[in-house]
Design a protein around this nucleic acid. Structure first.
Length: 255
DNA sequence: ATGCCCCCAAACTGGGGA
């Protein structure tokens, strides 16, 4: 079983990258974040022709998430249950497929919109914690994967890439991430690579890719049984070398 | 030294977001 998560930074700009990637990797599921389009604008047919079912939760211009699935599925949520009334942004998509609850998420960055913008990030994390709690209490196999916009520790960002009050490394953001772990979820990458310095994102500016000035902000958190079955975690860095790449690369999780 | 990229609105450039 193979799951991929990829912040694509506009599906309309990079649908060909995704197509080539799917042909090569043939994942069971692909989580996409930052598709940056409305549902009607998503190139559904392209992927349906490749044998994928396409579930899109988009919005105009920004954000937006989608899941491509090679298996039958049930749609669970397009908004985190705890945010229902107050969430205007397309940042969450949850399905059940092959007996596993699959949660695709795109957390607010939290650096824009001042303190209020940062609070929205914390609200999202709290709603995520609530959702994880519910699923784990009910003993459901689940995977939370996506762009968390959080560097869990100081090892997860290159020196001098972030200021000390950046929303990606603020204590409140990190505590939210740790609370998810304390609930019993496993950080899949750290389960296999406890000490290596590894990144999933490199800024377009300042030659960040060439200098390896990256961040680890794309994560996969696994419920206990999924963690037992974890076989490999691959950061597909080759995608960052392609023409007009996304600033994030895919993370491939195999069970 | 923000050296990039994407989106949109209203234009052939600027602002916002990341």
């Amino acid at each position: 079983m193979k799951l991929v998560s990829w912040n694509i930074n506009s599906i309309r700009q990079r649908h060909e990258h995704v197509q080539a990637f799917l042909t090569k990797e043939q994942p069971d599921w692909l989580f996409l974040q930052e598709i940056k389009c409305q549902n009607e604008q998503f190139p559904k047919e392209t992927f349906e022709e490749m044998g994928y079912q396409v579930i899109v939760h988009g919005q105009k211009a920004y954000n937006g998430v989608a899941i491509l699935s090679r298996h039958p599925y049930q749609l669970n949520h397009v908004v985190l249950p705890d945010l229902n009334e107050e969430e205007p942004q397309a940042r969450y998509l949850e399905i059940e497929s092959q007996g596993v609850i699959l949660c695709n998420l795109y957390l607010p960055n939290g650096n824009s919109g001042g303190e209020e913008g940062f609070q929205r990030k914390l609200h999202f994390i709290n709603a995520l914690i609530k959702r994880a709690e519910t699923l784990l209490i009910n003993k459901q196999d689940c995977i939370f994967a996506g762009d968390f916009n959080i560097c869990p520790t100081d090892q997860d960002f290159a020196p001098k890439t972030l200021s000390e009050n950046d929303a990606l490394i603020r204590t409140e953001s990190r505590n939210g991430f740790y609370r998810l772990l304390w609930l019993g979820l496993t950080d899949a990458l750290r389960a296999l690579y406890p000490t290596e310095t590894l990144y999933t994102f490199w800024d377009y500016t300042r030659g960040a890719w060439q200098r390896n000035a990256g961040l680890r902000i794309d994560h996969a958190l696994l419920s206990p049984k999924m963690a037992e079955q974890l076989k490999s975690f691959t950061i597909e860095k080759s995608e960052r070398d392609k023409e007009q790449p996304s600033d994030h690369v895919p993370i491939i999780i195999e069970f």
